[in-house]
Amino acid sequence: MGRSTETFSKKEKEKVKQKKRKDKEEKKEERKASASKGQSLDQMLAYVDENGNITSAPPDPNKKKSINTEDIRIGVSRQEATTPQDATRKGVVTFFNESKGYGFIKDQDNQDSIFVHMSGLIDPIKEHDKVTFEIEMTPKGQSAIAVKKAI
């Protein structure tokens, strides 16, 4: 006489599989019953209001705004060209490392910290010196050139 090959754990696993199949079928039937196929185009459309929110109501044509395409800025804003009168600026050296050959100048007008390299110096400078300088745009940002000690 042979012993049955079905063990308790095998029977339990099979029960769990059957329950999952049954649950899946029930969910499928429920989705079919509640599905609203054949909706009209108006029910499927969504609109965006003036604040950027999605709504089901079409926008009011009276609230329509016209926007000039030149006013739209994407990416980095354009730098204004410096005028000759503000080409020479005044500032104070906040940091300068003579051995490495670079430092920073704090602009008196807008309190910006501007990079200065040894190659842009006319007079030798050190920290806390008052200087006059011009600004040059480099790929990494503003850099001070023609740096002289202010008298």
Rank of each mutant, 00 (worst) to 15 (best):
M1A: 15
M1N: 10
G2A: 14
T5Q: 06
T5P: 05
T5A: 04
T7P: 02
E12S: 11
E12W: 13
K13R: 10
K15P: 01
V16S: 11
V16I: 14
Q18A: 12
K19T: 11
K22H: 05
K22G: 02
E25R: 09
K27R: 06
K28Y: 04
E29S: 13
E29P: 02
R31L: 10
A33G: 05
A33E: 12
A33D: 07
S34W: 05
S34A: 09
A35L: 05
S36C: 05
G38D: 08
G38F: 03
Q39T: 06
Q39K: 15
S40F: 07
Q43E: 13
M44E: 12
M44G: 03
M44R: 15
M44K: 15
A46H: 09
D49G: 13
D49P: 10
E50D: 14
N51W: 09
G52H: 14
I54C: 04
I54K: 14
T55D: 11
A57W: 04
A57N: 12
P58A: 15
P58G: 14
D60K: 14
P61K: 05
S66T: 14
I67C: 06
T69G: 11
E70S: 15
D71G: 07
D71V: 02
D71K: 12
I74N: 05
G75R: 11
R78W: 00
Q79W: 00
E80T: 11
E80C: 02
E80A: 11
E80S: 07
E80H: 04
A81Q: 09
T82S: 10
P84C: 04
P84V: 11
Q85R: 12
Q85E: 13
A87T: 12
T88V: 12
K90F: 02
K90Y: 06
G91A: 06
G91I: 02
V92A: 05
F96G: 00
F96C: 03
N97K: 14
E98F: 03
E98I: 03
G101R: 06
G101E: 03
G101C: 07
Y102T: 06
Y102F: 15
G103Q: 05
F104Y: 13
F104P: 01
F104Q: 06
I105E: 03
D107W: 04
D107G: 02
Q108V: 00
Q108K: 06
Q108Y: 07
N110Q: 13
Q111W: 04
D112L: 10
D112I: 01
S113C: 02
I114W: 02
I114A: 04
F115L: 06
S119C: 06
G120L: 07
L121S: 08
L121E: 07
L121C: 09
I122T: 15
E127T: 14
H128C: 07
D129F: 13
K130N: 14
T132G: 01
F133D: 02
T138D: 05
Q142G: 01
S143E: 12
A144T: 00
A144P: 00
V147E: 01
V147K: 03
K148N: 12
